[in-house]
Computed example of a mutant assay.
Amino acid sequence: MFKTGMTTGDFWRVVNPKMDVLKKRRRELAEKRKALYAEYRTAQQDMRELTAAKGNLDHLYRATEGRGHKAQER
């Protein structure tokens, strides 16, 4: 295409060197996002387990609380 033997891609790198920097930054951010999302999923799973455990404990507490009052009434 060009008399210098440059391809279109080479031409754009010469004209706009920031594009390579931006692509590199985008790749870095995508890798960071992927790692952080894995951490987020782990924290989310932990939260679900803790919420389920709290619900179970609340249910048991309410069930035993009612029994204590009935025993005192007798």
Score class of each variant (00 low, 15 high):
Met1Ser: 10
Met1Val: 13
Thr4Pro: 07
Thr4Val: 08
Gly5Arg: 12
Met6Arg: 06
Thr7Lys: 08
Thr7Gly: 09
Thr7Phe: 07
Thr7Arg: 07
Thr8Val: 09
Gly9Ser: 15
Asp10Lys: 15
Asp10Asn: 14
Phe11Trp: 15
Phe11Met: 15
Trp12Asp: 01
Trp12Phe: 11
Trp12Asn: 05
Arg13Asp: 08
Arg13Val: 02
Arg13Ala: 04
Val14Leu: 13
Val14Thr: 08
Val14His: 11
Val14Pro: 02
Val14Arg: 08
Pro17Leu: 08
Pro17Ile: 05
Lys18Leu: 12
Met19Lys: 09
Met19Trp: 14
Asp20Arg: 09
Asp20Ile: 10
Asp20Phe: 03
Val21Ser: 10
Val21Met: 13
Val21His: 07
Leu22Ser: 03
Leu22Arg: 05
Lys24Pro: 05
Lys24Asp: 11
Lys24Met: 08
Arg25Gln: 10
Arg25Lys: 09
Arg25Leu: 11
Arg26Gly: 05
Arg26His: 04
Arg27Ala: 10
Arg27Asn: 05
Leu29Gln: 13
Leu29Gly: 08
Leu29His: 10
Ala30Glu: 00
Ala30Pro: 02
Ala30Phe: 01
Ala30Asn: 00
Ala30Gly: 00
Glu31Phe: 04
Glu31Ile: 02
Glu31Gln: 10
Lys32Glu: 05
Lys32Pro: 00
Arg33Tyr: 00
Arg33Phe: 03
Arg33Trp: 00
Lys34Thr: 12
Lys34Gly: 09
Lys34Ala: 15
Ala35Pro: 00
Ala35Cys: 01
Ala35Met: 03
Leu36Pro: 00
Leu36Asn: 01
Tyr37His: 02
Tyr37Arg: 00
Ala38Asn: 03
Ala38Lys: 08
Ala38Phe: 04
Ala38Gly: 06
Ala38Gln: 05
Ala38Ser: 04
Ala38Val: 10
Glu39Ile: 13
Tyr40Gln: 07
Tyr40Pro: 08
Arg41Pro: 07
Arg41Ser: 08
Arg41Ala: 09
Arg41Asp: 11
Arg41Gln: 09
Arg41Val: 09
Thr42Phe: 11
Thr42Gln: 13
Ala43His: 01
Ala43Gln: 01
Ala43Ser: 02
Ala43Cys: 02
Gln44Thr: 08
Gln44Glu: 12
Gln45Val: 03
Gln45Gly: 03
Gln45Phe: 05
Gln45Ser: 06
Asp46Tyr: 01
Asp46Thr: 03
Asp46Gly: 05
Met47Asn: 11
Arg48Gly: 08
Glu49His: 05
Glu49Gln: 12
Glu49Asp: 13
Leu50Asp: 08
Thr51Phe: 07
Ala52Lys: 14
Ala52Cys: 07
Lys54Gly: 05
Gly55Tyr: 03
Asn56Glu: 14
Asn56Lys: 15
Asn56Gln: 14
Leu57Cys: 09
Leu57Arg: 11
Asp58Met: 14
Asp58Gly: 14
Asp58Tyr: 11
Leu60Cys: 01
Tyr61Phe: 09
Tyr61Thr: 10
Arg62Trp: 02
Arg62Gln: 01
Ala63Gly: 03
Thr64Cys: 04
Thr64Lys: 02
Thr64Gly: 01
Gly66Trp: 04
Gly66Glu: 09
Arg67Pro: 06
Gly68Pro: 02
His69Gly: 13
Lys70Ala: 14
Lys70Arg: 14
Lys70Asp: 08
Ala71Met: 04
Gln72Cys: 06
Glu73His: 12
Glu73Gly: 09
Glu73Ile: 12
Arg74Ser: 04
Arg74His: 01
Arg74Phe: 00
Arg74Met: 06
